[in-house]
């Protein structure tokens, strides 16, 4: 069901008699078109949303129609991490580590209420209120759990996002490090984000002020 209409219209007019012989496109479009139809998700499920992900992957809804059929069992071979389910504080270090191990380009889809915002466990002592606090999320799919069709709609949204990227601007072709290396959060009674260590240190060093403390 590949629609090549957009791929063939980079803004140059092709004369009528040449339309079936000549095709003009841009590198960007070709590159994005190639990537959008071969997004390989990671075989990685956390809770009940994973069941819906499996249903979407299986024959009835068949993500193979979108080039997403190969669930890679290793982060080294995958482009897309579908965070399907409740992310506990114990699990988030592993998720960030898996994200770091994925080669660029990499995308994250927060599937379901729990992954995108904590869901019914938002106030829980052991649940991360949204995986986007630790890894950059591209698409949020609400629902508890989203049906296979809703997940497919979310993945199509991701494909639209891939379409808008330009080879000149994407971060993995920029100078510098190949990939973003996210600090792995430290598991403890309160999950600590290493990116906020300085902030935490400053707060700890500050002499206790009764007025501000009562406010907080």
């Amino acid at each position: 069901m590949t629609d090549n209409k957009e791929l063939n219209s980079p803004g140059y007019e092709i004369p009528e008699d040449l339309q079936h012989a000549v095709s003009i496109t841009t590198i960007d479009r070709l590159y994005n078109w190639g990537r959008r139809w071969s997004v390989w998700p990671m075989m990685f499920g956390l809770a009940c949303c994973a069941i819906e992900m499996i249903a979407a992957q299986a024959a009835r809804y068949d993500l193979a129609r979108f080039g997403m059929e190969v669930m890679r069992p290793s982060p080294r071979q995958s482009d897309l991490m579908i965070v399907a389910g409740t992310v506990t504080k114990k699990m988030i270090p592993a998720i960030v580590r898996l994200y770091n191990q994925m080669p660029e380009p990499k995308y994250v889809v927060a599937m379901g209420a729990c992954a995108s915002g904590g869901g019914p466990f938002k106030e829980g002592y052991n649940v991360v209120a949204g995986v986007d606090k630790f890894v950059p999320v591209d698409v949020y799919i609400p629902g508890c759990p989203p049906t296979p069709q809703a997940l497919t709609a979310g993945l199509m949204k991701l494909q639209e996002k891939i379409d808008k990227e330009s080879i000149r601007k994407v971060r993995w072709y920029q100078k510098g490090a190949d990939s973003v290396e996210l600090p792995i959060p430290v598991l403890g009674p309160d999950l600590m984000d290493p990116r906020r260590y300085n902030e935490i240190k400053m707060l700890a060093a500050k002499p206790a002020e009764p007025a501000t403390e009562s406010k907080a």
Partner: peptide, 8 residues
């Protein structure tokens, strides 16, 4: 159900 988006 097609309400997936790029932000919360």
């Amino acid at each position: 159900y097609e309400i997936a988006s790029y932000q919360r």
